[in-house]
Each structure stands twice: as structure tokens, then as C-alpha cells.
Design a protein around this nucleic acid. Sequence first.
DNA 1: AACGATTAAATCGTACACGATATATTATAG
DNA 2: CTATAATATATCGTGTACGATTTAATCGTT
Lengths: 149, 149
Amino acid sequence: MDDFLTLDKQLCFAIYETSSQFSKLYSKVLEPFDLTYPQYLVLLALWEQDGIGVMALGEKLRLGTGTLTPLLTRMEKGGWIRKERSREDERKVHVYLERKAIEQKAGITQAVQSAIATCRISMEEYVQLMEYLRRLQEKLARAKQHVGS
Amino acid sequence: MDDFLTLDKQLCFAIYETSSQFSKLYSKVLEPFDLTYPQYLVLLALWEQDGIGVMALGEKLRLGTGTLTPLLTRMEKGGWIRKERSREDERKVHVYLERKAIEQKAGITQAVQSAIATCRISMEEYVQLMEYLRRLQEKLARAKQHVGS
DNA sequence: AACGATTAAATCGTACACGATATATTATAG
DNA sequence: CTATAATATATCGTGTACGATTTAATCGTT
């Protein structure tokens, strides 16, 4: 009688699936710009706060340098950003938006918005989901401490 | 005034973060068994339906053969599963649980359950979230058609 | 001033994840 | 009965993602 062990009853899998769906949808929308989904997330973070340090960026995105460094290298090669070592502290590296990322902001965000608009997610649904996810994230963070000990 | 473009207001990012959290938590719990999170999902699917074909497994997990084939190869090497070519149709390959996967089922699921239990997710929260996610998945699936055209 | 501890990035090795292509087998049309 | 289409899986190339280690710079204490 372990019916609750079914894949389609697992919250973790529902999140996993949805995340994968988002990733695929966004990838399709971003493809014309030669951007991947994680790269778009980096742009979102930088549009919000340009010149941020690599570490702060990693905290925002929950990504370590093992993921971030090569990702930023590719974005630099693509002409989206520029990495610059800090003068005051030579350990730190700041990430700056290049002209391309600023100029194409409107086009990119509009393409994403119009794709999301076709979903017709109601404001109530959106707000509720965000709140449920926030609470879940708190609980998962606490659980991680438990397991670590 | 594009405050809604902030990372922490994006539903896609909230899902992305939560998925990452689940993955990290489960990875920690599964590490003693030498299992990764996606490998655990494969076991869930097989405990539910042993001997399933690779394609059906991919549909359950929303994974293509580009991901599944190497994943299953690693699980075979780890002694969890066995791949067997179908007699009637030599194109098809069925995936069977090995003794190890059957014997360790109780231990694995109990370890996962006890980690999740520390989250103290209420039944109401669980049911609501699953329902919201189901609806969101439908909408994302429809949006993907739109974009594709 | 000097040296161990801390911090910030980069690097490394492994494992997904995806779309595109290749390969092999079965089904089907003529 | 054969040429072709369809199907199932494998392979390939690229891009995350993660933990662990390495490298380099700064800080703290003596």
C-alpha cells in the first residue's frame, strides 16, 4: 500500500517537471537572442543591479562558482557582459552589462512577457503559488540543516 | 518601472530555486545509497511499474533518450537495474529492477520520508500546491504549442 | 613585518539535460 | 517483395549544475 510513492503524487517531481517545462519554454523564446534560460536569469539579476560581484550574483541565483564562472565566460564571449577585477580587492570580480544587454533588454523581456501572457495565469493564482513556494522553500532550507547534522 | 522584472518576483525563478533545493536535499539523503536524485526518480517509476520500456519511462519522467540512456547505463553499472532488448520487437529495450533495488526500497524510501517529514508540510499545503502546479503545467504545455507555431 | 586563517574565483571531475543526428528494426505502400 | 516511411534507441555536442580542490589576495594576530 505505498500508493503515495507514485511519481505523480510526489511534490518533488511536480516541481521538477514544472521547472523543466519553464526551462524548455523560456529556451525556445530566448533562442532567437542566442540566450539560454540561465543566461537570461543572469541578465535579470544584472538589469536589477549592474556591477554586482560574482559571489553576490551566485547568492541571488543560488549558483556556485563552479556553475557561474563558465556561464559568465560564455556570456562574455557572447558580448552580453564584461567581467572586471575590483581595484580595491583584487580577489573580487564585478560583472557589468555590455551595451548589447542594455539595448536588447526591451526586446528580450517583451518576447518573454508575450509568451507568458499566453498562459493566462490569473493574478490570484500567481500570488498564491508564489506564497506557497516561499513557505515550501523555507521548510526545505530548514530540512537541509537537519540532514546535514 | 519594471519592478516586476525582479528575480524574486518571477514565478519561473521561484520554481527554479525550489527545484534546485529539492535536488540538493534529496541528493544529500540519497548519497549513502550511491544514488543521485534523477536515479531515485527512475527507481520510483520502476517500483511503480517494473519492466517498462525506455520510451515509456522517458514519458513518465519527461526525459529524452539523450538523458535517459547514459543515466540508465550508470544505474546498470551500479547494479540497480538491468536493460533487456525485447524479443518481439528488437528496437525496444525494457528496464528491470535488480535485486538490489528491490531489497533496498524500504531503506531508501524511509530515509527520504524521514527527511521530508522534518519539513512538516501540512496536508492542506501539499494538496493545494499540487493542484496549483497541475494547473500551471497545463498552461505551460499550451504556451509551448503557441511558441512553436 | 610575518605568517596562518579567511575569503573570492577559478578549475576539475562527474552527472544531468537538451536538441539534433545516426543506426537499427519493424511497418507499410505499391 | 521491395523501397520507403516510421519507430526506438543510441550517440554527439553543448550547456548547466554540483561538490571538492586549487590558487591568489586580504585580514588578523602576534
